[in-house]
Amino acid sequence: MNQAPDLIVPTDLVDPLDPTDLVDPLDPTDLVDPLDPGGFDLYLPGHGGRPPVVVLVHGLFPEPPPVSPRRTPFFRAYAAQLASRGTAAVVLDHELTGGMRYPEASATLDRVLSAVRSSGEVDGDAVGVWFFSGGGPLAYPVLAAGHEWLRCVALTYPLLPTEDIPGWPSLSDALRGLGNTPVVLTLVENELPAFVAGQQALLAAPPPGLTTIDVPGAEHGFDTGPATEHGRAAVLRALDAVTGQLVGTP
Rank of each mutant, 00 (worst) to 15 (best):
N2Y: 10
P5C: 09
P10Y: 02
D12E: 11
D15A: 11
P16E: 01
L17I: 14
D21H: 14
D21W: 14
D21R: 15
L22F: 15
L26T: 15
D27V: 15
T29R: 00
D33N: 10
P34M: 05
L35N: 05
D36I: 12
G38N: 12
G39D: 13
F40H: 15
Y43D: 01
L44N: 03
P45G: 12
G49I: 08
P51K: 09
L56E: 07
L56G: 03
L60F: 12
P64C: 03
P64D: 00
P65H: 04
R70C: 01
T72P: 01
P73R: 06
P73W: 11
S84C: 02
R85L: 14
V90W: 02
L92R: 03
D93A: 00
H94N: 06
T97S: 04
P103A: 00
P103G: 00
T108P: 03
L109P: 06
R111H: 08
E121K: 15
V122M: 10
D125I: 08
G128L: 10
W130I: 03
F131W: 01
F132H: 15
F132C: 07
F132M: 13
G134R: 02
G136V: 05
P137A: 13
V142M: 08
G146Y: 02
H147Y: 13
H147G: 05
E148T: 09
C152E: 13
C152D: 06
Y157P: 02
P161M: 00
P161F: 00
E163T: 12
D164A: 15
I165M: 05
W168Y: 10
S170G: 09
S170H: 05
S172H: 06
S172A: 12
L175E: 04
N180A: 14
N180Q: 15
V184D: 03
V188G: 04
E189V: 03
E189Q: 13
L192F: 06
F195H: 07
A197G: 08
Q199M: 14
A204F: 11
L210F: 02
T211W: 03
T212W: 05
I213R: 07
D214C: 08
V215M: 04
F222S: 03
A227C: 08
E229D: 11
E229Y: 07
G231Q: 02
A234W: 02
R237L: 10
T243N: 11
V247F: 11
P250G: 01
P250V: 07
